[in-house]
Design a protein around this nucleic acid. Structure first.
Length: 133
DNA sequence: ATAATGACATGTT
DNA sequence: TAACATGCCATTA
């Protein structure tokens, strides 16, 4: 049985280059609807952790308001902005905040990808309703 | 076992 | 809009 951390990293890996997802979206996709904050914790930890072999595309995860919300000193918001722009995601700076048009770049899983998540119908429905409309 | 800690989300002022 | 308050959850000490 995969741990929350493992499932989180796997889900983040599934975000295509040039796309983004919210913390809450990732949480829902791994079957733990309200663990958005915990997802952030995992990314923060895995990011500073040098033992992980596969690099995690942590920069593709932002909050649901479309704002870059990192506070990490080693990997600050400005770095996330650069990484995103390198993938073609437009990041605008407005009132000391780095923002992304999240609905424009949001990763929208295909029905096929959704089925692979093997989630209860209830969660699938939630994903569709919240993010795929 | 318990409590503190966040790269969150949502509703209310 | 923005600030504040509340709810939630895995991880860590």
């Amino acid at each position: 049985m995969p741990t929350f951390t493992q499932k989180t990293l796997q889900a983040v890996h599934s975000i295509p280059k040039g796309k983004v997802a919210s913390y809450g979206q990732i949480a829902l996709m791994i079957g733990v609807p309200r663990a958005a904050q915990a997802v952030g914790q995992v990314l923060h930890a895995s990011d500073t952790n040098t033992t992980s072999t596969a690099p995690i595309p942590w920069w593709r995860v932002i909050n649901n308001a479309g704002r870059i919300s990192t506070t990490c000193l080693e990997h600050p918001a400005i770095m996330q902005k650069q990484l995103l722009e390198k993938e073609g995601v437009v990041v605008t700076e407005l009132a000391h905040e780095l923002k992304v048009d999240i609905e424009k770049y949001r990763y929208r899983p295909t029905p096929d990808e959704l089925s692979k998540l093997e989630l209860p119908d209830e969660y699938i429905e939630a994903i569709v309703k919240k993010y795929l409309l």
